[in-house]
Nucleic acid binder design. Structure first.
Lengths: 349, 349
DNA sequence: GTGAAAGCGCTAACAT
DNA sequence: ATGTTAGCGCTTTCAC
């Protein structure tokens, strides 16, 4: 309420009967200080509810204890879980995070990045809006250490933490192939994203190895509504696959919604592997087999990498590829031979 | 890479051949400046890629352009959507947000709040860990304007933005009652939360008005796993309700998962109203009727309220109660009369 | 081991 | 309308 002024360091100094420099030394703990003085200072600080002014500290000392995190969207659970993981990792070391959403837009990303840099953060963790990452120049020019998370082009020279997209997708496909599926469709958000393309590749490779037909790839957009719309009528009874791999959490939802609209029941008529395993996928009936990304490890790894850079580590750039885990549930099932097959007699009985 | 030093205001001043104060005036735009000079200054700033140092600006000017946002958890979509909404609202006005998670823990909340305050933010938006909000004293003492979002005790003297919990829950119950349901269970996360208690009240009131039995209330915890565990075997065939209202998004998932485990099929055997409408609820089969909270309006309203306080508005404290919208889908269905009823003949025909 | 003094980058008085 | 000056709260030499 009352626009009370916070106690300053010299307030504390006065109360403890020492100089401001000593207070700084006590609180920062970098220089040896007389234990008695230290006690007096701490008590004075506590009595005044003293809280260091981080901005002033940074201004003078140069170190900032704040990390900028920028993601394509804050409305996507995947990105927010990443943020949660990062916050968990940073928080214990006295860092705070500034977050911003690029709204899936290159230009916005640039604006937000600029704004962030004006806080002179100790480092930045970014999930770029696209894998070209045009706005990299801002970061490089600023000299602020940064780590690129998740969406990554092949030739990006930077510290990178991502998943092994091809492998994850391959495992999903192999799981389906193992169940006897020979006609797999891949539903992708946008092929402009390198990670999505890599996932496609993984499925393709698995199909090739198994000598089944190449997967059909559908590109349906980034939002649930877009996906639902594009999928309208895609699953005509004639050209219906026996299994679908959805490459994104939003896409997974869209595919799920599209099935009943096309008169398909899952898993009887079709199997589905989703991407980004979240709680709701375990709650539905049937529950959904999905590729679980190691979100927590990604956040932790990104922070560890960034922390080292902040500490001045100058080793060659890191390119981490974490593995995913395929969580098998009820939405994938072994194919039952179609009735119009050789042994059709069975269906008449 | 290169730990390049950012250009300072006096670098710009030098290049433009003016004083630092003039640069400040041009860039801040608060004082009249000669147009020609302004152009020169802006060009010099652009050439040097000048970005104001926000910390220094705050230190001198006292205004900070940063808002702290603290929520009980960053792993809960409801809170992260709130953050997304807040970011959208703030961002256009040049503010940034620092976010922190209280990890559903009073003590952590205190720590995080303290850390935030040391950035001297212009304001704080907080979803308290519990409705007592013990840590309020920190905020009051600091003098930083703040708005309390969502979880609110009855007697909290502060600016408050919340939903009309009782009304929302009442509407959910009335919807079910209108469909003929006479035995409703309420599955709550924790009755320690005022908003949850208010939701219970809403259902109770609706039942009373309709002269049907009081709803049974189950308290099952805050996380999906806890909910699933507690619900194990709760729906014995004997004492099974005809409809369930879940008061939280996590609880909704838990209930959903519990049905098949108890041999219940939805909506044939039972109807369900969920809380916090998210995309996946529209994607499942059956899709889920749910109370949609006006997340975006909540964020916007909180910011507007906070902005006014920051601007020095001293009007009496605001207590906003936004309305929810019941999104009716397939998980709620009219009760089919039990066959052992008077008109059992009907069911034989 | 402790204090005095300088100065980080900026803005608000004040002087011109 | 512009420049000069002072100082926000802190950390860091550098004396002592």
């Amino acid at each position: 309420m009352s626009s009370r002024k916070p106690a300053t360091m010299s307030d504390v100094a006065k109360r403890a009967g020492v100089s401001a420099a000593t207070v700084s030394n006590v609180l920062a703990g970098k220089k040896p200080v007389d234990p008695d003085l230290a006690v007096r200072v701490r008590r004075a600080a506590a009595e005044l509810d003293y809280q260091i002014d981080r901005a002033a500290s940074r201004l003078r000392g140069g170190k900032s204890k704040v990390i900028g995190v920028i993601v394509p969207s804050l409305d996507n659970t995947f990105f927010t879980s990443l943020i949660a993981a990062i916050e968990r990792a940073l928080q214990s070391e006295g860092y705070d995070i500034i977050v911003a959403s690029a709204k899936d837009d290159d230009a916005v990303e640039r604006t937000r990045l600029t704004a962030m840099l004006s806080w002179r953060p100790a480092g930045i963790i970014i999930v770029p809006t696209d894998d070209v990452f045009n706005n990299r120049d801002l970061l490089d020019f600023s000299g602020v250490p940064y780590v690129v998370l998740d969406r990554v082009g092949t030739d990006l020279a930077a510290d990178i933490v991502a998943i092994d997209n091809a492998k994850a997708a391959r495992e999903a496909a192999e799981h389906l192939i193992g169940l006897g599926h020979g006609d797999i469709w891949v539903v992708a958000s946008s092929l402009k994203l390198a990670n999505i393309r890599q996932r496609c590749e993984g499925v393709r490779a698995a199909c090739q190895d198994a000598r089944i037909g190449a997967p059909k790839i559908l590109e349906v957009g980034m939002t649930f509504d877009a996906v639902a719309e594009r999928l309208e009528g895609q699953f005509a009874a004639s050209g219906r696959p026996s299994a679908v791999i959805a490459l994104t959490n939003f896409v997974t939802m869209g595919v799920l919604a599209a099935f009943p609209k096309n008169g398909i029941s899952m898993p009887a008529d079709i199997s589905l592997v989703g991407f980004d395993d979240y709680a709701w996928m375990a709650a539905t009936t049937p529950s959904i087999t999905a590729v679980r990304q190691p979100v927590n490890s990604m956040g932790t790894a990104a922070w560890e990498c960034l922390r080292n850079r902040i500490a001045g580590e100058t080793s060659p750039q890191v390119r981490l590829q974490l593995s995913c885990h395929l969580k098998i549930r009820q939405s994938t099932r072994a194919v039952t031979r179609p009735v119009d097959h050789n042994d059709a007699a069975k269906s008449v009985g």
